[in-house]
């Protein structure tokens, strides 16, 4: 089945300030992702996989090449347009959960969707139930376990119904049992929501469960 191209990375290079360009994080990286599909990015610590995810999330700037999301090239966007893109089309799940400590589970779940415009309450109720958070909605993040917190973070991201979900080691802070459960749930829900998934992980096991797998090494993808 031919799918629309959602993410296209073309010849992107990135070099940190003051870094020798010969030793850039990556050079001329190219990658495609169709709507509704998933891709896993693996690599050693410091190989630059998180950085590539940040570039795709319009959180960071690249030096050359182009990244297009849903037909929009990132290189020409100013801060406001990048913010709008993140607000409406892209959601992120981080290793450290990054919940808002002063908001309850329910408020956290709703936050990105409300920022994006119109929350789909039915979908969010479904998400809450499926993520097993229905009894925890009035709690604050500090009152949750790590696994619960990450489920809130995943729920918050998916509540937006993003076209692209970016996840950076989402289970990196969890023990093995919790990790497997959260990952199962996430993949299932991503699939249901129809979002494309760009997952950074160091675990080959997890990577193998996705549609495709790319390895980043010495600044090149393979």
């Amino acid at each position: 089945m031919a799918r629309d191209l959602l993410l296209s990375i073309r010849n992107v290079s990135k070099c940190f300030p003051g870094q020798d360009p010969e030793r850039a994080v990556f050079r001329d990286v190219s990658l495609d992702l169709s709507a509704g599909t998933s891709i896993a990015l693996t690599g050693e610590s410091g190989s630059g996989k998180s950085t590539l995810l940040h570039l795709v999330g319009a959180l960071d700037h690249f030096d050359s090449g182009e990244i297009e999301i849903d037909g929009t090239g990132l290189s020409k966007l100013n801060d406001t347009a990048r913010a709008a893109l993140r607000r409406c089309k892209v959601a992120l799940v981080f290793q450290q959960f990054n919940l808002v400590p002063s908001l309850t589970v329910e408020q956290n779940m709703l936050l990105h969707a409300r920022l994006g415009g119109s929350p789909d309450f039915e979908w969010i109720t479904t998400l809450t139930r499926r993520l097993g958070l229905a009894d925890l909605t009035t709690r604050y993040p500090e009152q949750l376990s790590g696994g619960q917190q990450q489920r809130v973070a995943i729920g918050r991201a998916l509540a937006l119904r993003p076209k692209l979900l970016l996840a950076d080691e989402p289970t990196g802070n969890l023990d093995e049992t919790a990790s497997a459960a959260v990952m199962d749930l996430m993949l299932e829900l991503v699939h249901e929501s129809g979002a494309a998934l760009f997952l950074v992980t160091h675990s080959v096991q997890i990577a193998n469960r996705l549609d495709r797998r790319v390895h980043l090494s010495a600044g090149q993808v393979a």
């Binding site: 709008a84 993140r86 990054n98």
Partner: peptide, 16 residues
């Protein structure tokens, strides 16, 4: 600080 980063990651522009 964390909140600001999270909000910005969710698409709240710096100016706003």
């Amino acid at each position: 600080r964390g909140l600001f980063r999270t909000l910005r990651a969710m698409g709240v522009s710096l100016r706003l």
